[in-house]
């Protein structure tokens, strides 16, 4: 049988149905079984991309994306150093918890003859460095200056978000360029799941609808958008480390529930999310190599078509409309929800 995403989807659906004792329970929140499958397939496409995408030196991409070439060398060197600083921080935390490091987070070996070849990047990696270099908002989010009006005034706050919106809009890919559909969508997905820029805006709007209550439902928010370090074993599934279910297309659907659901109502959604996260992460992690190889045998066009038809997260982007109350809440939300990072010292 010719490998295809449709066939893979059937197999995965079968696996989930035979694995979970009550598949209907997975749909007790806002996600359906089809949504979970879409997320799983998207992540397999990403895993395949990480392993097999073409890599090129920065100069190759400069000709494509940064034709001014003014001060680019320092710009990208700084960006690479910043990114590596945060990757090392993440990798050290993983090593401390589990005793090993993730190779994909380690710095590229630039010793010996490799000095002359330079760093080799995928298009997605290059775009991330470019975004980091050009989008001031990301620096302000990382450094948490965004949380204080002393560091970022309200008008600067609006400007930063407008710039972010425009820069991200600039890389929305044309649907007929298959490789860009994958690499650019991955860049948007990675940026949003890391910084939660737009999700926090959706939460702010929901908080406004609920009357800007003082307490922020942090636990509920985390259950939707934060990586879970460990889910213990159940009778139907072994324990899973680093579980996620970042189904961006429907993240916003949960935002009102954060503020309005009773504890009982939320508990059902929480358990459903938990199970969905466990089943998705277990299948992806346990079947990783097989799934990546299977996806590799599908054409790039087919993968791009899947993203265009089923996972077009570009349509989820909100147009930011800020009021002083919203800005205030966003600052507070960011301060309470996001992690602290030690500051990098890069010249």
């Amino acid at each position: 049988m010719t490998p295809s995403i449709a066939e893979l989807r059937k197999e995965l659906k079968q696996s989930i149905s035979s694995m979970h004792p009550d598949v209907a329970f997975l749909e007790k929140g806002h996600y359906t079984l089809d949504d979970i499958l879409d997320q799983l397939i998207f992540e397999i496409i990403i895993e395949e991309y990480k392993q097999y995408a073409e890599r090129h030196p920065v100069q190759y991409f400069l000709d494509l994306y940064d034709d001014e070439h003014v001060g680019t060398s320092r710009k990208y060197t700084r960006s690479i150093q910043y990114a590596q600083y945060f990757r090392d921080y993440e990798n050290d935390a993983i090593e401390e918890a589990h005793g090993f490091k993730l190779p994909e987070l380690e710095a590229q070996d630039m010793s010996g003859s490799k000095t002359f070849e330079g760093h080799q990047f995928t298009e997605h990696e290059f775009l991330q460095y470019k975004f980091k270099a050009e989008c001031a908002l990301l620096t302000k989010l990382h450094g948490r200056q965004i949380e204080s009006s002393k560091h970022v005034s309200n008008s600067a706050f609006k400007d930063l978000f407008n710039e972010y919106y425009n820069l991200m809009g600039d890389i929305e890919p044309p649907v007929n360029n298959a490789s860009k559909v994958i690499s650019h969508t991955y860049t948007y997905y990675a940026t949003e799941t890391y910084f939660l820029t737009e999700f926090l805006y959706h939460i702010t709007l929901a908080a406004e609808r609920a009357g800007f209550k003082k307490a922020i439902p942090l636990e509920r928010i985390r259950e939707v958008c934060v990586l879970t370090p460990e889910i213990p074993a159940t009778v139907w599934c072994p324990g899973v480390y680093y579980a996620t279910l970042f189904y961006i297309p429907k993240w916003a659907a949960y935002t009102d529930d954060f503020f309005t659901d009773s504890d009982e109502t939320w508990l059902v959604k929480e358990c459903s999310l938990w199970d969905s996260m466990q089943v998705k992460s277990f299948i992806l992690q346990r079947g990783h190599d097989y799934l990546v190889e299977y996806m590799h045998s599908c054409s790039v066009r087919e993968k791009a078509d899947f993203i265009v038809e089923k996972y077009w997260i570009w349509d989820c982007r909100p147009e930011f409309e800020w009021t002083p109350e919203r800005i205030l809440y966003y600052r507070k939300l960011h301060a309470e929800l996001m992690r602290d990072f030690p500051k990098p010292h890069i010249k």
Binding site: E172, P174, V175, N176, N177, V308, W312, W314, D315
Partner: peptide, 10 residues
């Protein structure tokens, strides 16, 4: 190559 946006495609 001429580009086609998602909106045009839809």
């Amino acid at each position: 190559m001429p580009t086609i946006s998602k909106k045009q495609y839809d």
